[in-house]
Lab assay of single mutants.
Amino acid sequence: KEYCRTLFAYEGTNEDELTFKEGEIIHLISKETGEAGWWRGELNGKEGVFPDNFAVQINEL
């Protein structure tokens, strides 16, 4: 499994977007979303897309 840590808080504006606080760990599902600048991940049981410049991939939890 791949993970990323959020660098900033983000408020999702669409139903398919994740909302998160700074410093949260998102399970990274895919970097290929069909839309440049967006990754797909899962946080707190919800799957959605989020801007990749708001997070950095990490090697271990």
Score class of each variant (00 low, 15 high):
K1Q: 07
K1W: 05
K1G: 09
E2F: 07
E2T: 11
E2L: 11
Y3A: 07
Y3W: 03
Y3D: 04
C4L: 13
C4W: 08
C4E: 00
C4I: 11
C4S: 01
C4P: 00
R5M: 08
R5Q: 07
R5A: 06
T6G: 05
T6S: 12
T6W: 00
L7N: 09
L7D: 06
L7H: 03
L7E: 06
L7S: 12
F8Y: 11
F8H: 11
F8E: 14
A9E: 12
A9V: 04
A9G: 08
A9P: 12
A9F: 06
A9M: 08
Y10K: 10
Y10P: 01
Y10I: 01
Y10S: 04
Y10F: 10
Y10E: 04
E11D: 11
E11W: 09
G12Q: 05
G12A: 15
G12S: 11
G12V: 00
G12T: 06
T13M: 14
T13F: 06
T13N: 12
T13S: 13
T13P: 04
T13A: 15
N14H: 12
N14K: 13
N14M: 10
N14I: 10
E15D: 14
E15Y: 09
E15C: 11
D16P: 02
D16A: 12
D16W: 10
D16N: 14
E17V: 05
E17W: 01
E17H: 12
E17Y: 06
E17K: 03
E17C: 10
L18S: 02
L18K: 02
T19K: 06
T19L: 01
T19H: 09
F20S: 04
F20Q: 03
F20K: 03
K21Y: 07
K21E: 14
K21W: 05
E22D: 04
E22I: 07
E22H: 02
E22W: 00
G23W: 05
G23A: 02
G23E: 04
G23F: 01
E24Q: 11
E24K: 03
E24N: 01
E24V: 08
I25S: 06
I25L: 12
I25W: 02
I25G: 04
H27E: 15
H27N: 10
H27K: 15
H27R: 14
H27P: 06
H27D: 07
H27A: 14
L28T: 06
L28K: 05
I29L: 14
I29H: 04
I29G: 02
S30M: 05
S30E: 10
S30N: 11
S30Q: 07
S30D: 10
K31M: 14
K31H: 05
E32A: 09
E32Q: 11
E32K: 13
E32S: 12
E32V: 11
T33G: 12
T33W: 07
G34K: 15
G34I: 03
G34L: 05
G34C: 12
G34V: 07
G34R: 09
E35A: 15
E35C: 13
E35H: 12
E35I: 15
A36P: 15
G37L: 01
G37I: 04
G37C: 04
G37D: 04
G37T: 06
W38T: 07
W38M: 10
W39G: 04
W39A: 08
R40H: 08
R40Y: 10
G41N: 01
G41R: 00
E42K: 14
L43D: 06
L43H: 05
L43M: 09
L43Q: 03
L43P: 03
L43C: 09
N44C: 08
N44W: 04
N44A: 11
N44F: 06
G45V: 01
G45Q: 04
K46S: 07
K46V: 13
K46R: 14
K46E: 07
E47K: 09
E47M: 08
E47R: 13
E47N: 10
E47H: 10
E47Y: 10
E47S: 13
G48S: 01
G48N: 00
G48A: 03
G48D: 03
G48Q: 00
V49H: 05
V49D: 06
V49Q: 08
V49M: 12
V49F: 12
F50K: 00
F50C: 05
F50A: 05
P51V: 00
P51Y: 01
P51R: 13
P51E: 04
P51K: 15
P51A: 06
D52F: 11
D52L: 13
D52A: 15
D52H: 08
N53Q: 13
N53M: 10
N53G: 13
N53C: 11
N53S: 14
F54T: 12
F54K: 15
A55L: 04
A55H: 00
A55R: 00
A55C: 12
V56I: 08
V56A: 12
Q57T: 13
Q57G: 12
Q57Y: 06
Q57C: 11
Q57N: 12
I58R: 06
I58D: 14
I58C: 11
I58A: 11
N59E: 13
N59M: 06
N59A: 11
E60N: 09
E60Q: 11
E60L: 08
E60D: 15
E60K: 15
E60H: 15
L61K: 15
L61A: 15
L61H: 14
L61T: 15
